[in-house]
Nucleic acid binder design. Structure first.
Lengths: 234, 234
DNA sequence: GCAATAGTGTCTTTCAGACACTATATC
DNA sequence: GATATAGTGTCTGAAAGACACTATTGC
């Protein structure tokens, strides 16, 4: 066996896949890309790419965010590394999954400029932090078939989001700089998949000290406008 | 540039490192291996090895547990993937870190048969789930220098342990099949790095419904023996 | 009986859930 | 003034912390 064949055989390929999520009309959503080529042509996949030997994992995830998802400025965090032998029919590909969060307004340019991208609704059939796979739905509620093991990756991203919501600042990454407490509560409810008690939510968040009232109010509501808050600098 | 050189240059190497932890005399401990060769010769490292192209990541971690740590039957869970460019002076090595848990009694054979293995005390200088690196100490309290970025990996393992303690069954993985509530509380205190209120701890754990009283009692205490519990099957 | 820990009773505080109420903007 | 939501006051119940107390074993 030549050294080249040994080397080829010896190392798995390393990729990164990006679970870029948002909240749209009170529901969790994820950016998907329709696959044009085999394998899994026609199915929907998370934006991803191979990790270059000269770039760190975090840099590869940022590159996928910019080049494949066509966006920037997201909260990005490593999720999990998927390394089963059969997860990619092309060969041994280990993927380091990242999740990223952006407010819905930021998706407009990417969606109009790239017709193979879609922001799909995310649904899970488990409660709390049980865990499991997730489904992606289009605007009419029809299920979009997911490529490879991306239903598992998406499900794990939802589980992680739910787990981190209480003690981290991820909810703010899904909102513009100024937001109302109603919008913040809707983000929490979309992530958790349940409805929350309004007074308790307000007490907990305001007492938590991570919010800053601006004195300004939202506009164009048709009813009493709510005060705008911003995230207090950590 | 030949195709071989391109292939060699193109793929990072993939390894796995194992944070095999336990609780000894009320303190967190981790299994370390003294490095015999450069780089980092003489420093202490987590047991690890390269991932074969024909084995899954989980299988590679189990293999390291058996071959390098010389143990079996541990709770094993993926921790995080470290992929900075400079983390290994030999070249581009991505490592998928796992943490594993075993009761202290299980470490005896490995420690006596392999003189390069040591069960070192773990200390962190941060509270709660702040996060940060960790230190390893020998029996006399002297710091053991850690190789590569293993102080960061160890610190992340402690953070993850603290985060999962409340809602998972990891504490039971650090105890024999039968244990007293005092021993269970000592495990919790060792992981969290603080002391807990006894009545509140007992109430919470017993009401939690994951424990089963056996009616049997510990032996050889010299004082009133406590009842032995076991983990209730999930 | 003494020592040492097991195990419990109870008071207080904290906080979430529930519900109803008042306040204030647009129309 | 009608309407819709913002925002608050207050009651209740669950659970943690604190503390003291009783119980039980070996010696």
């Amino acid at each position: 066996m030549s050294r080249r064949a040994f080397q080829d055989y010896d190392k798995p390929s390393v990729a990164t896949d990006l679970v870029l999520m948002s909240v749209r009309t009170g529901r969790l959503a994820v950016l998907l890309q329709k696959r044009a080529h085999e394998p899994e042509a026609g199915k929907w996949a998370l934006p991803g790419g191979f990790v270059d030997v000269g770039e760190s994992l975090d840099a590869a995830a940022e590159r996928v965010l910019a080049e494949k998802a066509r966006m920037a400025g997201a909260w990005v965090e490593q999720l999990y590394t998927f390394g089963d032998l059969q997860r990619d029919p092309r060969g041994r590909v280990i993927t380091v999954a990242y999740f990223a969060l952006l407010p819905e307004e930021k998706f407009g340019p990417a969606l109009t400029s790239a017709p193979d991208l879609a922001l799909a609704e995310v649904q899970v059939d488990w409660a709390g932090e049980t865990g499991g796979s997730a489904r992606a739905l289009d605007e009419e509620g029809l299920e979009l078939p997911l490529a490879f093991d991306h239903a598992d990756i998406l499900g794990l991203a939802v589980k992680r989001l739910r787990g981190k919501l209480d003690y981290s600042d991820i909810a703010f990454a899904l909102l513009p700089e100024l937001f109302t407490l109603r919008e913040l509560q809707q983000v929490h409810e979309a992530i958790l998949g349940l409805s929350l008690n309004k007074p308790a939510f307000r007490r907990r968040l305001i007492d938590g000290g991570r919010l800053e009232a601006t004195g300004r109010r939202e506009a164009g509501t048709g009813f009493r406008p709510a005060e705008l808050y911003r995230r207090k600098a950590p």
